[in-house]
Design a protein around this nucleic acid. Structure first.
Lengths: 370, 370
DNA sequence: TGTATACATGAATCTCAGC
DNA sequence: GGCTGAGATTCATGTATAC
């Protein structure tokens, strides 16, 4: 793990520590555009009528304030807007946020996210495999919670480790509904009385998937409602830096102890499957320059189209010339075409994809860097 | 089916008919406190830009209809507020509403519901068994839509047929996540060209579950965005009265024809509603996420081969990385390999097959869903 | 007629480096 | 910031066609 601070202009980032106090004040004390990912599990005790605080941290009194539904929503909205604004200031331009909630608060959180300029990428449902049943039989078993994943703004280049998530899901694209058990058993932290240390401790599996999917090793992850520190624990295991903010001293103590006992995974284990987009580009012309394909040689497509290689690495067909992609797209009447997988050549009586040659070139590039 | 009107004071209720025109005006023309349930599938306000192509270059037929275009969130919010207000006036005191949407609009709808005085009872997730994938690999598969179920006000005595829903669910309490296929095949209505008659037709199984669960025979069900009339068709089958409102004449015609051909208690519809559950497929990655195996941990094979677990649920061996099956096959020089029975780990001095862990996960899933 | 293969399609905010 | 061009990217299901 790196040192405790990262310099960013004049300010320092208190990495891998738990900050005490109100999350809005704490976030405002940190340098802007310094965090890669925020995970937030904000309070949503709206309908319990009590223990709700205004943005200025004064407590709302249900009786004195003539509590009603409307005023309670207004107060909650103001609180939500304030912390989402502070969080957005902290995010790097290509950073992202995850917020988790239930039907009590998630609609207000989602609307505020949109109003504040975040760009929703997905809503993801955590489908609990072992939920608490609805004992009174008056409603459906509350068997899920909703998470919203959003980038700082529209058009941002957010991190999404598509291949790693696909690998986690046994080769099938990861869906927006995740089946995971609730946090219990040995993972559930207990206080000295043997009671649960925190009412809504999130399972580490949830954070594992979020952090593997939307951060890279070395990224900075901030959790403004740290609780017992699940975010910090999983971030440490996965080689990400983390910052927690928590108001309650009892939670901070439990979290600190918990994270101290966590080990980081081996560096090798943190390497995940990568996309082809991350591979170095190989110009087709290089295959010609290197003599892997001869100018004048004929390439064929699975659909039986034909083109000839020219000395400058372009192709020429019956009535078209251009790059391997352009000629392929034209011959197929398609909007685009990946020429690397489309075109084939003959060697020793066999038809071979030109992509095999690209892979050879790439393999040599790797060899040379060792 | 009863007569076409129900007297309610001086006004009459146009039962089992489709009203033409704007839904807000039409609702305002109906008597207040006269409807038992409202099901609404409002425009989602998708903001699609260019065309989208599948990897095979075919073009996706997008929802680009004029009725889904709104110039801003403010305009969409005003529209939402107006129709929810009109709808609430129509509801009997113990009536309820269901609204369906996606992340584009559902947060705004949910917040407006709360602001207008509705009381949210559950959010229910429709998990699509066969969603359209994310073709560019940039986000999670959009595999669900969200429905909000709300009573007219807090404390209302809404209808909830707990036992009927439990029976639909093979004797287990119905959860807040429903697995149902999207509407296609014979159920999907086509126009005279053979194209889909409506871009977003909902499956009858969804409405079946909603109406069985939250109405009684003889209740009045209103749908202000009637489309091709799924709500009316299922209401008729189930012996509920219905009122549809639809602005587009083409949709009204399709809906009228469809409902005319429906018989009460249609066997086929009941069949649809009890569609099969998700198979308990367990990706290897889930064992890692859930902490049953640790990234960096070594797995062994009966033949003495070795590989290490990575954070994304892939394995890495001496000169190979990939899924448990791929790495096993490569190390054995075999065309294929069942990684579940091939790989083993050590616990308490013993060598255990990873398949034991899969069986543990499966046992938990089966326990809760059957 | 039965089986195997090919094709079509679904509420979608779906690329990115380099100039 | 805008433009150009390389080149990466899909799962489940129903229907049509081929053999």
């Amino acid at each position: 793990m790196r040192t405790m601070t990262k310099k960013k202009g004049a300010s320092a980032l208190p990495l891998n520590t738990i900050l005490a106090g109100d999350c809005i004040e704490a976030m405002n004390s940190l340098p802007e555009a310094s965090v890669d990912l925020i995970f937030a599990d904000p309070p949503y005790n709206l309908q319990l009528k009590g223990d709700l605080h205004r943005p200025d941290n004064s407590r709302v009194d249900a009786v004195d304030d003539h509590w009603d539904q409307f005023s309670s929503f207004a107060v909650y909205d103001a609180f939500t807007k304030a912390w989402l604004k502070a969080a957005r200031r902290l995010l790097k331009p290509d950073g992202a946020i995850w917020v988790i909630g239930s039907y009590h608060n998630i609609f207000r959180v989602g609307a505020t996210l949109q109003d504040e300029g975040y760009w929703i990428l997905n809503d993801v449902v955590w489908r609990k495999s072992n939920p608490m049943p609805n004992f009174r039989g008056k409603r459906f078993t509350n068997a899920h919670e909703t998470m919203i994943w959003a980038s700082k703004s529209e058009g941002a280049k957010y991190t999404f480790n598509y291949e790693a998530l696909k690998a986690l899901n046994e080769g099938i694209q990861m869906r927006s509904d995740w089946v995971l058990p609730i946090c219990n058993g040995g993972e559930r932290l207990k206080d000295s009385n043997g009671d649960k240390a925190h009412p809504t401790q999130k399972p580490e599996g949830l954070l594992h998937r979020i952090l593997v999917g939307s951060t890279n090793p070395g990224d900075v992850v901030l959790d403004p409602f740290f609780g017992t520190g699940t975010t910090g624990a999983v971030a440490k295991m996965l080689g990400r830096d983390w910052i927690g903010i928590e108001r309650e001293e009892a939670y901070r103590e439990v979290a600190a102890r918990r994270i101290a006992s966590v080990r980081k995974y081996d560096r090798e284990a943190l390497q995940v499957s990568t996309s082809k987009r991350a591979e170095p580009r190989v110009p087709f012309g290089q295959l010609v320059e290197r003599g892997m394909l001869r100018p004048g040689e004929t390439l064929t497509s699975p659909s039986g189209k034909i083109a000839k290689v020219r000395a400058d690495g372009t192709l020429i067909g019956d009535d078209v010339k251009g790059s391997i992609h352009q000629v392929g797209a034209h011959l197929e009447g398609a909007p685009s075409c990946n020429g690397w997988t489309y075109w084939h050549f003959r060697r020793e009586g066999k038809t071979v994809s030109i992509d095999v040659l690209r892979q050879q070139v790439r393999a040599e590039m790797v060899e040379r860097t060792h």
